[in-house]
Design a binder for these strands. Structure first.
Lengths: 164, 164
DNA sequence: TGCAATTCTTTTATGCTTCAAGCAATTGGC
DNA sequence: GCCAATTGCTTGAAGCATAAAAGAATTGCA
């Protein structure tokens, strides 16, 4: 069996068609769900996904966060956060102030309005997700969690290898 | 057991925390891989993922495709395709002509240059994906494929229900 | 103390993405 | 043959996203 596998690996340069199909399926599945969530957020609350995600971060940080913190947590660029925050301050959902101890730092937090709206959205959002995964059994969910964790680890290793 | 479950369902409005965590994991996992692929495409070939995806569609259609076809296949808006195609024609990767039988229709196909470059990129791309999923066993891949298919079906059902 | 390096944020240029509105060509019913 | 509806594409406005450069403030070290 081991010999066979090795022989094959030498004969045909490599067959990675399965992995490729897995990647495509992962991507389609995620995109399908993501675009459904975007639609519902837009329709129901007239809000975009990036705005929702930013508010979700801030909801977990009652004392506020710096723009850098947000940028790291959301895994998006600094410049991106600057613009996003600007629009959310504009609409009254966020409060932004310069830190007392370091004038380079901007601290943002949810306003009362922002928090109230987010909580409302988050509640519905959770039911949408449940609805979307309704056909999966508890066991399916557990297995997916496990395999996705493994896949994520594998991807992180690949990133590491390249960065090295 | 059944009674218990039902009782619980009535008492606590619902607990969908697991599904929510599954969604977040699916999203992070996909984003991690996608951004790694974007980086590599950019570094190695100075090309963006949307351009690569569009060329991938055209590589499978030697006789060309209409913009609408591309738009459906890629699941993006018409206006998006218009701009994408414009830039790829500009750079010499695509050939675009008005259909003989219907002057509304634009038919695009890869140029010789476009095809050559795409083939080169596609080859490396496949090895990147294999590298990214290297820690998964064959069995893991099969299981993930199966569960993602189920998840996709579940999501499609949810979309259907909402559209209805 | 002074100044170089670092850190935090913003700005700029470019590209992707959507939706909505609009234009051009074709089709279908009368 | 005519005209309304449909189809295919483009345009325009707004938002999201990045990388790179630059501007401010702080830190650390000689």
């Amino acid at each position: 069996m081991t010999l066979d596998a090795e022989t094959k690996a030498v004969e045909t340069p490599e067959d990675h068609a399965e992995e490729l199909r897995l990647w495509l399926r992962l991507l389609t599945c995620t995109n399908l769900i993501e675009s459904e969530i975007r639609s519902r957020l837009r329709e129901r609350f007239d809000v975009t996904l990036p705005r929702f995600d930013l508010m979700a971060q801030l909801d977990k940080a009652p004392d506020g966060m710096t723009l850098s913190d947000v940028s790291k947590r959301m895994m998006v660029s600094n410049g991106n956060v600057t613009g996003l925050v600007e629009r959310l301050v504009e609409s009254g959902h966020l409060d932004r102030r310069t830190s007392d101890t370091d004038r380079r730092v901007q601290v943002i937090r949810l306003t009362k309005l922002g928090r109230a709206e987010f909580r409302k959205m988050a509640g519905e959002h959770e039911t949408w997700i449940a609805d979307i995964f309704a056909d999966l059994t508890e066991r399916d969910v557990r297995e997916l969690m496990r395999l996705l964790a493994k896949a994520k680890g594998s991807a992180q290793n690949a990133v590491q290898r390249r960065d090295a």
